[in-house]
Design a protein around this nucleic acid. Sequence first.
DNA 1: CTGTTAGCGCTTTCAG
DNA 2: CTGAAAGCGCTAACAG
Lengths: 341, 341
Amino acid sequence: MSQEDYMKKRVTIYQVARESGYSLATVSRVINNKDNVTEETKRKVLETIERLGYKPSAIAQGLAKSFTTNVGIVIPSAMYSYVANMLSGMTDIAKIYGYRTTLFVTSPIQEQASEVVERVISSNVDGVVIFDDQLTEADIAKLASYQVPVAVIGRDLTGENVASIPLKYEETLRETIRMHFERGQEKVVFLKMTDGNGALMNSLVDVAKNECEKIGKGDLFEVLDIQDSYTKTYQQFLDIFKNRNNFGFYISPRDSIACGVLNAARDSNINVPEEVQIISIIGTKYSQIVRPSLTIFDVDMYEVGSIAMRMLTKLLSKSLQTRVYPFYSSIIERNSTRKAK
Amino acid sequence: MSQEDYMKKRVTIYQVARESGYSLATVSRVINNKDNVTEETKRKVLETIERLGYKPSAIAQGLAKSFTTNVGIVIPSAMYSYVANMLSGMTDIAKIYGYRTTLFVTSPIQEQASEVVERVISSNVDGVVIFDDQLTEADIAKLASYQVPVAVIGRDLTGENVASIPLKYEETLRETIRMHFERGQEKVVFLKMTDGNGALMNSLVDVAKNECEKIGKGDLFEVLDIQDSYTKTYQQFLDIFKNRNNFGFYISPRDSIACGVLNAARDSNINVPEEVQIISIIGTKYSQIVRPSLTIFDVDMYEVGSIAMRMLTKLLSKSLQTRVYPFYSSIIERNSTRKAK
DNA sequence: CTGTTAGCGCTTTCAG
DNA sequence: CTGAAAGCGCTAACAG
């Protein structure tokens, strides 16, 4: 860059206009790549833009155009690795479509979580993709009512300005339970996080319970409260396994948690999968790395994130066809569960 | 919310002014909590704001005030778990200070990575924290020259508008190597990622090499190219360990990579740490979960992220005292390395 | 093809 | 304590 590098104030379109000898409008046209400008003019303007080191102010553009090429992303504050994967998917796609991404992080406390809606609304994003179980449907409706198009992950929702990507674990979960009882009779224990892990997991607890009852194994179903931490779960299970009992089929919401169980079993000399079996609903790299490797319900979170963002961009350009795009999980059988005979 | 929920256009300050019977200026004052407003007036204005569901436009505010309460965060596209931790640290602090966060993700390709600078400049963020080895010092200087305050992680830099958080692994690395050769004579192998993992790791390779040479073990130092992937590293090492040779002391840039080596060793029936030792420079939860647990250089990335963001906010409020805040790594000895006698 | 002129929604002197 | 009016930097008719 030129000597303007040490300028004290950012150069505006006015100065470019003055220096280049053209009008505001013309400069604006070349900035926006309108075609009604002579090559010659364009060249000259571009040259002085370069010379002055001018960069358009997105904020002024936003105000004038009434859109910002800015999309919001709402995620929970705890950045689990699957959230990170999803985030990658979203940002990658956003970048491709030329959107900046504003990250809104919700608080773990329900009441405070809803505040994010206010922040999103006044942030002037063109749209938002939401992955956050804490938010209520009313929150989402509110966004939509403020003309903020929304893509929601993990729910089945529709409406003007709303697209959704439901995550379907139910069927896989039911099948898993059925298959378990075909092979064995150990109790099924659903690990449930005490701090509101939100709607999705809670509904899954019910699904599991109902399925057990349906096949007459209601008495073999348990819910166990755990903390949202690998270390704490590990300690807890060290204790649980101390007397080499409490064997069963454990269902964990996340693989990092499942790793706690797995390692506790191992360190208590308990054989996985012969004595204890574990499956995790959400699986990330942890599930591959840990030994024995972990059976998981497979949903590619990167993919989910990128689809969500893509749907949002379509929503923004009014070209979205299907407004609901469910992801069905499949099961990836690894070594923490017993194989079928 | 009221019946305005289904309004088709966002309400502006004008309407609030009209409806409340006050002027723009007064409404603006109450929005901004200026004290020169009667309680009475304030109450009334607030009431109509509530009634109309008015939310100020951050973008218009930004234009008028010439700052946006928006900070940028620049991170590499591959969201490793330590990046995710850092990101959490940054967003948590940003939120506390009332900043929105715009996420800029750099491309893995060097030339394209620098483009992020342009995007940041025209995005009108008030400042930016950068964690990206791809960016050059010139890139950072450019940001600073455009009056964008910068906090850089992982480098030792200063300047007007610049703060930095160098990550000091050198000394720990030297010490590790020294201690290794006091206990054994196996070769030291530095795992180096082929795709530019950037300046930091490259400089660490040199540090390791120099240290080995310094203590007369230059011939026992090797660099091994690896790919940036757990699975690929695992495969590669399965091959390397096939004949139960190539024992040594491996230094990995990241724990997910180290897990590849660890699992390959284990699955090749090689004893860790007796036959092969592994240490990782960056450590996350993987290092705790994997068995044997992994010795790492400890730097709390969440902490790094939050300090960086805090420094940026201080920079923005012109109240930053110390502009360089180095983080020194310490070693967390676990079971992938042999203990001292 | 280019220039003039209103805004976009809000803040901020400056008067009163 | 409150209001009028001039911008913030840029875009978008509307003329020419």
